[in-house]
Amino acid sequence: MSETVLDPPMNAGAAALLPARRAGHVLPGFGLTMGLTLLWLGLVVLIPLAGLFLKTAELSPARILGILTATRTLNALKISFGLSLAAAALNLVFGAVIVWALTRYDFPGRRVLDALIDIPFALPTAVAGIALTTLYAENGWIGALLAPFGIKVAFTPLGILVALIFIGLPFVVRTVQPVLEDLDRDLEEAAATLGAGRWTTIRRIVLPAVFPAFLTGFALAFARAVGEYGSVIFIAGNLPNVSEIAPLLIVIRLEEFRYADATAIAATMLVAAFLLLFVINALQRWSQARTGRLS
């Protein structure tokens, strides 16, 4: 123990070369807890995910390409990624309106509205799925209102969009909200004093400051939507090539015992998810650098 306390300061380079820097180890349990951490992470997360890539690697490149370029697969990927993009974009608009109302205005029920935003995080996806379906079906509360205009939501791609808006909305709100709350109002006041109109102030002062947070929220909502399953499959109608999302196609292939197909599509989506995660991490660092807080 004594040598750990008296360890002389090392330069950063030397410290990085040592696998476990003893200078930090005043407290006991590093070996045990780090060992357990790596074991647990390996068993539950890393080995299972590696297994997916190993299974994919057993397939020939031509086979993988054939699976991925099959019309049904391509359409499922197009539907998943396209509608997720659309839902995340709409959530930017909805999120902006909600965050602005929550952070800038005081009105009766503001705290309730704020609390309700988290419902999609907490409500199990299957429950959200059946509730949205019943609501937007032709005889549902909202569906019945839209039916006279010839608008069908449930069992069409529009239904998928509604479900993806539901699950993505809190990501945008909860990412942008703290940044807008912390924004220094003096800058806006200064702009107003200097003669800038309200819209100019928002466009030139507020928007640049919250832009990285909006992008992060967009990416988080998009990433969640791409992999979403439970809330979508009830409302989608699940017609191949029309309203069949990629995660559902994975399940269908699995049930047909077409493991190669399921695996290849899953591996593709996992690679996309990891790329998105990389982008989100970069965006969060950027946002933090810009605003001094983690969004």
């Binding site: 410290a15 990085a16 696998p19 476990a20 820097r21 200078a23 930090g24 180890h25 407290l27 349990g29 590093f30 807890t33 780090m34 357990l36 951490t37 647990w40 992470l41 997360v45 890393l46 995910l49 997916l52 996806t125 990433a223 791409v226 992999g227 979403e228 399953y229 439970g230 995660p247 559902l248 994975i250 399940v251 899953a266 989506m269 996992l270 998810a273 990891f274 998105l276 995660l277 991490n281």
Partner: peptide, 30 residues
Amino acid sequence: MAWAITKFSFPGKSFLITLIDLPFSVSPVI
């Protein structure tokens, strides 16, 4: 995991945290 990560200093810490968060990025179906 939190004890190992926060009570000691070691290289690759932020990468380890990213790995712990990884399941959030994986589709439930996968």
